[in-house]
């Protein structure tokens, strides 16, 4: 089982411990977890888009997912680990970065050609807002802490009902937009962090990042809008 040893203590773990000990290493882990989370979000959106395809299709998809509880558990633990790593490192990095300038400037103005609030400057803030959204989302869908529905409720019905809750709908809508905001910087930033900055491809990556962010933001934001429109009987 040489490869296990390679993965384990001997190599990967050592590497990870060392990486987490340096500012660049932490950023690698940050970027990698971010990239994996983006992958998850894309799959998640794709699955949810089945809501628009049909009740049947969505329900089947959901049931298929839940028919393998082992897999779901592994996926959930994996996701949790990714989120936790991403968040904890973010908190750590942010605290360190603040500490690197204990006394701020009286006046501050960017030399870049841009306006004040940029995605990159507000990663921590947009991330924090995103976290709030995700927690509410988990409370609603995963743990049924708010508005628990009737037993045996079909997935589609459940989704529609939860999305029609005005608080959830509002938070989801705003949260989705912040997801896009977070990714505008996050996506292309990963490439820089992993060292893939190239005069030819970077502009392309940046554009792709923005496009991806817009698609994801609009995609997710569309669900509460769709649900609310349905609620108030607007014909779709």
């Amino acid at each position: 089982m040489g490869w296990l040893r390679l993965l384990g203590k001997e190599y990967l773990l050592n590497w990870l411990i060392k990486a987490l000990g340096s500012s660049i290493g932490r950023k690698f882990v940050m970027g990698l977890t971010g990239l994996l989370l983006i992958g998850f979000v894309i799959v998640h959106l794709a699955g949810n888009l089945l809501l628009y395809v049909g009740i049947e299709d969505y329900n089947n998809y959901a049931h298929a997912l839940h028919s393998k509880p082992g897999l779901v558990l592994v996926a959930e633990i994996g996701l949790l680990a990714l989120f936790l790593a991403h968040i904890l490192i973010a908190v750590g990095i942010t605290r360190e970065n603040r500490a690197a300038r204990p006394e701020g400037y009286q006046m501050r103005r960017s030399k870049q050609n841009r306006t004040a609030a940029t995605p990159s400057a507000l990663m921590f803030v947009s991330g924090a807002i995103l976290l709030g959204f995700i927690l509410l989302h988990l409370a609603d869908f995963r743990f049924h802490l708010r508005n628990p529905g009737p037993d045996g409720e079909e997935p589609f019905a459940k989704a529609l009902r939860l999305l029609q809750d005005p608080v959830s709908a509002g938070v989801y809508f705003v949260g989705s937009l912040f997801l896009g905001w977070h990714l505008v910087h996050g996506f292309q930033s990963v490439f820089q962090t992993l060292g893939w900055n190239h005069p030819k491809y970077t502009p392309l990556i940046k554009k792709a990042g923005v496009a991806l962010a817009v698609v994801l933001a609009l995609g997710f934001a569309s669900f509460p809008v769709w649900a609310m429109l349905k609620k108030y009987g607007v014909q779709l």
Partner: peptide, 29 residues
């Protein structure tokens, strides 16, 4: 502090050093 890819440094640099060097450093590291 660490780099969060804000690129203000590039705009501030009087010698015109570009952030592609940071990507290079990341890669080297």
């Amino acid at each position: 502090g660490g780099c969060t890819n804000t690129y203000e440094c590039e705009a501030a640099c009087p010698a015109g050093i570009q952030v592609t060097t940071i990507a290079k450093l990341n890669r080297e590291y």
